[in-house]
Computed example of a mutant assay.
Amino acid sequence: MTLSYCTNVHPAEDLRGVLAQLDRYAVPVRDRVGGELGLGLWLSAPVAKALAEDPARRAGLRTALDARGLVVRTLNAFPHGGFHDEVVKHAVYHPDWTTTARLDYTLDCATVLADLVPEGGAGSISTLPLAWRHPWSEADHARALDVLAEAAAGLRALADGTGRTIRLAVEPEPGCVVDTVADAVRVLAGRVDPDHVGICLDTCHLAVSFADPAAAVRSIADAGLRVVKVQASAALELTDPTDAPAVLGPFAEPRYLHQVRALVDGRVHRADDLPEAFAELPTGGPWRVHFHVPLHAEPPAPLRATTGVLREAVAAVREVGHDPDVEVETYTWSVLPDAGERGTGDLADRDLVEGIAAELRWAAAELPLEVRS
């Protein structure tokens, strides 16, 4: 398993901006962890299209990455664009897997990645869990599976033409059509080409679902599917949510969706965002919140981070013999409650660089994984 950090934490939406962000953040992170650094690269749809259409540009990007000591084995193709808009929320699920726009973006990303992965290596692309759960019809479901099949065919043709295997990883997320790992197994097993389509195990999402990590991973393997990618992430947990609005209120920010699940008397209760949770969820059992928190730093008490789920999931993936790319994906640095206290400009840059490097060192020690690519 190789370790990377995901660049969707950076807001660049054109190629010049991507390279500038790498110089501003990734190169200093590399200097702190030593050796070559793995990146889980995020490219907006226009950037991916421009690169896919121009082999010379792809070669230039590969040269630029090599010169900076940066290695790419995985792309995050969940956000299509605008991931740092003032309000993202449900927009991140569009275009969904019923559309040719999602197919085209994914295959553009695959074309780019095939030219970036190290010689003799394979690559992975994480993608959204078909769509947000509503509106969603049987016809939408059938169409999405057909489009996924087209994606698999495109990846197969790419492998035949380049010798590089790029695999698509569908990422279960609370509130979506593919909400849990159990949903992913039910929807995908026997319906997709397992050589080219598998599962992205986001361990924040896994924790929020209250699933047993080892059982979830075994169910993937037993269904003949592959854990193609692990997003090493942690959710917020509040064991006693009696005073949830006061404790979690600072995390109810306007940019991203923060789904909440409560486990009460063996039943999982659901809310699509923190404000709804405060109004609707029962408080007789623990809450878990889809808010990616830094792996190396415990949130303030009485909150906890679900890093234990991450450890168990990675151990289970090893146990079943899968070898996924592992990507640290804490994209929420700018919306953490203390973000304003960290200042702006060089001060904020140093803070983000130190934070990403600390997460990578934590993953290297605790999972354990090699921080150098």
Rank of each mutant, 00 (worst) to 15 (best):
G35I: 12
L155C: 09
V47Q: 12
A214Q: 08
H196C: 03
C6F: 13
Q259F: 08
V185R: 04
P129C: 08
A157Y: 10
C6D: 13
V29D: 02
L238P: 00
V192W: 03
H90N: 05
E150T: 04
P194Q: 09
S137K: 07
H10E: 01
T242R: 14
G17T: 06
A357M: 06
D338L: 04
D66C: 06
S373C: 08
L336I: 10
L116Y: 11
A365S: 14
E86S: 09
G82A: 12
A363G: 03
L103Y: 03
V33C: 07
R372Y: 00
A184Y: 01
W97R: 05
L295R: 02
P286T: 09
A67G: 15
T307L: 07
R255T: 10
A52M: 10
I199T: 00
H94E: 11
A110C: 03
K49M: 12
P300N: 02
L43W: 07
V88I: 14
Y5K: 07
P250H: 00
P368S: 14
A50F: 03
E173T: 03
R32I: 03
V87S: 03
V88P: 06
S373F: 11
D85A: 15
G175R: 05
T283K: 14
P95E: 11
W333A: 15
R143W: 03
A169T: 08
L236H: 01
R30W: 01
D338S: 14
A301L: 10
N8G: 12
L369Q: 06
W42S: 09
D222E: 15
G81M: 06
A277R: 10
R350W: 05
T332I: 07
P28A: 14
L128C: 09
L158N: 04
H322G: 05
P194R: 04
V260L: 00
V314T: 07
V197S: 07
L188Y: 05
G284C: 07
A169R: 05
D346I: 02
L248V: 08
G81Q: 12
Y5R: 02
K89G: 08
L336Q: 11
H134E: 15
R361T: 11
W132I: 13
V72A: 02
E150C: 06
R288Q: 13
M1A: 14
P294Q: 11
P368V: 12
G154C: 02
A313G: 11
R16N: 13
V170I: 13
T99M: 11
A77C: 12
V27Q: 02
K49W: 06
